[in-house]
Design a protein around this nucleic acid. Structure first.
Lengths: 243, 243
DNA sequence: TCTATTGACTTGTATAAACAAGTTGACTAT
DNA sequence: ATAGTCAACTTGTTTATACAAGTCAATAGA
């Protein structure tokens, strides 16, 4: 029930990095020192460090130590998608005041074409939600989601205007675990021009993805159409050894 | 010296998933069964499974089993960036015949402006390489790289025309470990229009990133400008628990 | 028939320990 | 002085074990 032991350790080290206790290029204390500090084994420390590594904050170096490769200057974009975050969450993390406007809410049944686009099987009953995400007065994201009705029969427009993820997790007790994201640039469609403030541009950055719950059910297909100049996505990767 | 024990296991399971031995929705054998099959402990199995999970192929479910959430239909794009791959590597993985054309090769010194753009300190001596990546006869990527000269004094145009990564890893023995990537959509610049076949579009998908070697030295800043309709990037993420 | 409990599974977390392997600096022998 | 060796660090891999916790079906009891 309580949080795992590696989590507070992960958070504390992460805080120290983000707040500048360790600067870009610095080396963290060794794993052995950490085991003494936190009273746990190396495995637990290594788990916390592994998380921070996969976030692109740390670079462990065999035989030398663990180096900090995060610099605060580089990460000043509005939204950095490094995990599965809802719009409201990303906004509150960046302490922005934002508004959500629902511009479409309907029930649909997946046909062949929608099935190919979303990955839902044909015949599945879905909620189709269209929302505009506003930062201040500026609309910056046109969000189009399809939710599997059977997993959330009670979903309505009011919930959509607040936070669907909050509803799923808090009210329904659903656990969202994994998502696959796909990023592309696309020609603007009429809705983009109608809803977003593209100031003359005719293209958008599109992030689409499938989201799974803990039972392995894909319950959401989402497509966010972003005003290009306002977003960026950071992904970090670890190179595979050549074999 | 030999590859770690989890690696062949990872590869074999990965192969089984990609080749369809396990279909979308199937459950893998349990970790205990795998320990018998491979003659190792659960830890080693879990490591292999963890890699596949972070790639978005698997979804472990507490108390139930490990489910396959990869379906071959979804992932048919030309380039999926799930790790650090050079163009030639991605191309050969997709068994494409490709050509690289060097359209610019010069030595520059980082000024204030370039420093902000790339993250190299002002005054650093750099190689500035511009390359066109062709798939068949179609140019699809305009690649602009800045390499830290001190790490590879001998870099020349001929090497750039082949594979710089191959040169760094094989010839110089450098190990490339980590990169941070940033994706955005941008208005096409004259070079894009000149070099790429945008068939009327006026925007490109831009992937920029910093690359580190095993000593923690950032030795490359790269910016790839893609024809939008030909690429997509898949990232998978695991949602953090709300605490 | 229905409900509750148990028990046998599953994955998740954590400890402890050992050895492999890369790095670094000090020390030694030439 | 210089090159080589060694010892003391570092992170990386693997084993073995234990327990926690979620799932599910069979079983026992009402």
């Amino acid at each position: 029930m309580p949080s795992p032991k590696y989590e507070p350790i992960y958070k504390e080290i992460r805080n120290e990095i983000l707040s500048g206790v360790y600067a870009y290029g610095d080396y963290l204390p060794s794993e052995n020192e950490y085991t003494q500090k936190y009273g746990c084994t190396r495995n637990t420390i290594r788990r916390a460090i592994g998380l921070l590594t996969s976030e692109g904050l740390l670079l462990p170096q065999h035989g030398r130590g663990v180096q900090v490769i995060y610099s605060p200057d580089t990460g000043k974009s509005l939204f950095t998608v490094g995990g599965i975050e809802s719009f409201s969450e990303a906004a509150s993390r960046n302490s922005l005041r934002v508004k959500t406007r629902v511009v479409g809410f309907e029930e649909v049944t997946a046909d062949e074409q929608l099935s190919i686009k979303t990955g839902f099987d044909p015949g599945k009953e879905l909620f189709h939600v269209q929302r505009i995400r506003q930062f201040g007065n500026k609309p910056i994201i046109f969000d189009e989601n399809w939710f599997l009705k059977s997993e959330m029969p009670e979903l309505n427009e009011k919930i959509a205007a607040a936070s669907i993820y909050r509803y799923l997790e808090m009210e329904l007790g659903m656990t969202i675990t994994t998502s696959k994201r796909r990023v592309s640039a696309e020609q603007a469609i009429p809705e983009d021009i109608q809803y977003l403030d593209l100031h003359g541009l005719d293209f958008v950055l599109v992030v689409s993805g499938q989201v799974f719950n803990s039972r392995g059910v894909m319950f959401e297909f989402t497509q966010s159409r972003h005003v290009p100049d306002r977003v960026c996505f950071i992904e970090s990767a670890v190179r595979q050894k050549i074999s």
